[in-house]
Write a protein that binds this DNA or RNA. Structure first.
Lengths: 244, 244
DNA sequence: AAGTGGTCTAGACCACTAT
DNA sequence: TAGTGGTCTAGACCACTTC
């Protein structure tokens, strides 16, 4: 699968973001949109699209009639739920050296819930991958992914690469591009098995995600459950008025 | 505080959303952007902005070169974390008759954590409001809000209106417009007090939000903690590639 | 080849903030 | 009143899907 060049808007966004983190806007004030447009030689629309993305991710805020400003609080937020795409990346941003261990890896019959979620017939084959993500040898995340076996282009070839991030695995071996997840947030008390794999005491409370991943054709391509150690990783989210 | 007229884009968004829920696009295919623009007498940009919002909230999906389609799965998602603005609204969308009970309501000295989060001096006065939200007489959400007392325009007048949704209270009595929350998602086992107020057994697991609300000047105006009964209300979120 | 969404431009006018 | 972000228009060209 191929990737596209970054758009002008994304280049502008990266440029401004860089100037922000380098603290080039000492008073916290970002130049007017018209000025930025002229300086960078692009239209004001392109500038506005870039600023909209930066505002959405909490790097800046805008006040109509007043100006655009650096959001010092927003810049410091880590582990934003909406931005998560691979747990390796989360742990890396978290400041540790992440690693992955594949605990199990097999083709088996889907149970009723998973089959229904993936629009499969009851008992259809799925590839089940259980992984644990560690930072500095300490387990942080336990995941269990189930991918319809029918999606595998070459069932034999995939062995040994189940350590890839899920979205890479799907692009590489299923020719599917993972576009979004619908995730359910569930509080849990870890059972004996989960606690052992996560290195905590049985009954410790944690967060679980039960989620379904969709591809470029809006088809469900993976059912995932993930368990997190709250003492090592805590998620945040920016909730905005009106869904802007 | 005054409110603004809905923009053309928002009117277009509502119009298309209505046609979607009325199932007017039987084959799941939404007309081309150029057609919509001509039919509604607006520019393609306005159409695109409206469609972008609908895509973001999961109502539609778009495939470059192919078209725009109704997202049947996305339409059914309830209790989306990013869209929450008042718990009354959440419970109403959830299909029950919501009610609110104010458990306590007093001016007291902020503890260290709250004072730091709200940029107050240690021990500064805050208005503390404890509320429980019920659906059909069953408690679902327990909240504890702390607002700097210095923000209250008329400390005497506010009594008796602490049952208002927080954003309304802040607009009405503090002249602050709540723009966004930064929320931390925490798994908890309810203690005796929380369990009693939520009508569950001590030790039941649930989700808590620890959050900070910011106003139009990007100032922190409220510190809030909320506890949810997982058996009655479960949150979902759409996590997208790249933060689009 | 035809059709559709994605990106980008140039410019107009409005709403709001600050002074 | 001047300056800034917010909304909207009209049109060009590109990237991709479908037939």
């Amino acid at each position: 699968m191929i990737t596209r060049n970054p758009s002008l808007t994304d280049q502008v966004k990266s440029h401004i973001k860089e100037r922000i983190v380098n603290d080039e806007f000492a008073d916290g004030r970002i130049p007017p949109e018209a000025t930025l447009a002229e300086d960078l030689g692009v239209s004001r629309t392109t500038i506005r699209d870039a600023l909209a993305k930066l505002e959405h991710e909490g790097a800046i805020y805008r006040k109509q009639g007043a100006g655009t400003f650096v959001n010092k609080v927003g810049l410091q937020i880590k582990s934003r739920l909406e931005e998560i795409w691979s747990y390796e990346q989360v742990l890396q941003d978290h400041g540790y050296a992440p690693s992955v261990k594949v605990l199990s890896d097999e083709i088996l019959a889907a149970d009723a819930e998973v089959a229904a979620a993936l629009s499969l017939e009851a008992g259809a084959d799925v590839l089940a991958i259980e992984k644990v993500f560690l930072e500095d040898d300490e387990p942080v995340v336990l995941t269990h992914n189930r991918i319809p076996a029918a999606l595998l282009e070459d069932p034999g070839r995939k062995r040994g690469r189940d350590d890839l991030p899920l979205y890479e695995f799907l692009e590489e071996f299923c020719d599917r591009r993972l576009m979004y997840y619908v995730s359910e947030i569930v509080p849990v008390a870890f059972d004996a098995d989960q606690a052992k794999k996560l290195g905590v005491k049985k009954g410790t409370v944690g967060i679980a995600f039960i989620e379904l991943g969709f591809d470029q054709n809006n088809e469900a391509v993976v059912h995932a459950t993930s368990y997190f150690r709250d003492d090592l990783l805590r998620f945040r989210i920016i909730r905005r008025r009106s869904g802007a």
